[in-house]
Amino acid sequence: MSSERGRGGKARNWLRLFSRKSPPTAPAKGKRDATPDAKEARAAREARRAQANAKKASRPAKTMLATPAADGRHRICVIGSSHMVAYKLAADETTIDPRLFVHFQGLAGREFAAIEADADGIFVDYEKLLLSPRHLRPMWDPLTDAIAYDAFDSFVVVGTLRTSHILKAFYEWRTTGHFSRAYIEAGVEMLIKRDPGVNLGQAIHQASGKPVVTLAAPLTAIAVDVGDQAAMDEAYRETKAAIEKGFHARGLTTVFQPDETVLDASSTKEIYARASQTLAGVEHEDEERAHMNAAFGKLVLPDILAAAGAQQAETGAPRLTSA
């Protein structure tokens, strides 16, 4: 699904044998691993891994995504969760600078965590997908092809890190006195560390050496009753700083939603959540306020493309005009 071919277009696929290396063996973890229980658990893990590798080896050859023609365009691959939809809709509804090639692909919800990256490229771990109770839901454009790093100049990962949760943590620290600063910072770091989008972005960056922009989810569009606006302002500033710092430590850059989309430093303005869509192209229910719409996407996409290196195009910053 690339913006150059419009909706419903067929991707040109290259065929390439897909193979995935086994993950490196985990280092010894001290004496606990030496116990009979730990040995048994390790043996069971290894057996499961061997079984999974055998299944993978018996699968049909994996299709690699087509590489766009090397015609001088800056090629950006956007891989995302359901939060990516706003940006894809924005790309569909506007004209992107012809010197850019932007490709979108993703999986929604928990399935997003099944997208992995290693030295061979970006792919879906079907073992993980099968563990999802909602596996293989019909969706708009699932990531079914492996993506080779050579096919793109930079990557964007639209992840699932809940900005609203981090904001709430900092706000509660400022207003309730219930938590220590160290606890809040450790918790925020753990949220970042465990986020599938962050992990995917980091893995792509490490394997490809290419720039990776990773996005946290926007603030939910549910208005918050802010008791202390000054504290909320400061908490939002801290939230962005913590995300930026955590991403930067992992070799990632990020883009935050524009201030004009934010209400009282605490939520996304409700108009940007109306008529949002799922990855399957279906409109969300009216009360859904976690995902944003094309209007939101249009405001953020230029920043995303710029962060992904689009400014390297001859004319500077990417140009988006309404179709």
Partner: peptide, 16 residues
Amino acid sequence: AETPFTHFPAQLSRAY
């Protein structure tokens, strides 16, 4: 009496 922050992973709680 004091509960951990709702959205933090439970694994953090014991250390604190």
